[in-house]
Simulated scan of single mutants.
Amino acid sequence: MNFNTGGSLLLFPSLAMLFSFLCLFLFLVPTLLAQSSDTNASSTSAAARALDTLLQDYAYRAFVRPKTGVLYDGVVPSNLTGVQIAAMRLRSGSMRTRGVEMYKEFQIPIGVVEQPYVERLVLVYQNLGNWSLRYYPLQNQTYLAPVLGLLAYDASDLSAKNLPELDLRAFGDPIKIRFSNVESVPKGSVRKCVWFDLHGLVEFSNLTAPNECSTIHQGHFSIVTESISPPSPAPGRRKKMQEMEKAADAGEALHMTTVGDTKAPSATVTRTQPTLETEYVP
């Protein structure tokens, strides 16, 4: 018997190569997708940090013959219309022993300390308004309030730019953020506080009071709720729609009719006109 093994010998290496390529493809795709996601997150975080640097510069420009403990509203560049900033210079010891009763939406209690120690510091306030989602995007979450920022900087040189943030921490009572103009949520939805630190970390927590969040750190804060997808049609209605679509494919003419706020197909019905007795012809 003469077996032609040449084709088989060529076939097996081809299958092996195809299998190897398939395994490599299945391994690389999730890796590439993960790298792409990490790159996007890193890019967003870098943009947010660049914004902090820019807003620090413009907040410091609000100081003209500044007085300690006085709030000064700043002006942002025209291409950031909608963002609000402010600055307040404080003595380090005064903030630690007295706190700040109310700085915009932030209530700073006694016992807040900065690291490293500086003689005077500046608290920069941010309200990102309609820019919140752009700089702090969240998947499957809807913002109910704008992102608010509270960052601390050295106040030794009020003309300085590109300053690093100080590490601000509350060692007693937490810092409270009392949001105003918080949007309402559908019945059954749960509101959550969200905190963004300066390194890309995101944490969710419960509200401590209506429209109020608390923190022991500086950073950016808001109130969010989980996004709700539009409801899918009921099973019975979905089945009816499928049957009507099949009828349309088979050639039966369908027309659209309005049911409540929804348009749905309906079959055309031809009614037989009644014949009057006077029209009857034998």
Results as ranks from 00 to 15, higher is better:
48 A>L: 09
49 R>V: 05
49 R>Y: 04
50 A>G: 01
52 D>F: 06
52 D>L: 08
52 D>E: 12
53 T>M: 06
56 Q>C: 08
57 D>I: 05
58 Y>E: 08
58 Y>S: 03
59 A>I: 04
60 Y>N: 11
64 V>M: 13
64 V>N: 15
64 V>P: 09
65 R>P: 05
66 P>V: 07
67 K>P: 02
67 K>C: 11
69 G>W: 02
75 V>Q: 15
75 V>Y: 11
78 S>V: 06
79 N>E: 15
80 L>Q: 04
81 T>W: 06
81 T>G: 09
82 G>L: 14
86 A>T: 02
87 A>E: 02
87 A>T: 04
87 A>S: 11
88 M>G: 00
91 R>W: 02
93 G>K: 10
94 S>C: 06
94 S>K: 12
98 R>M: 10
98 R>L: 13
99 G>K: 02
99 G>M: 00
100 V>G: 00
100 V>Q: 03
102 M>L: 15
102 M>N: 13
106 F>H: 03
106 F>V: 05
107 Q>C: 06
108 I>N: 00
112 V>D: 09
112 V>G: 09
114 E>M: 04
114 E>T: 08
119 E>L: 10
120 R>M: 03
121 L>N: 00
121 L>S: 00
123 L>W: 01
123 L>Y: 01
123 L>R: 01
124 V>Q: 00
125 Y>Q: 05
126 Q>C: 03
130 N>W: 12
132 S>R: 09
132 S>H: 08
134 R>I: 11
140 N>H: 15
141 Q>C: 08
143 Y>A: 08
145 A>L: 07
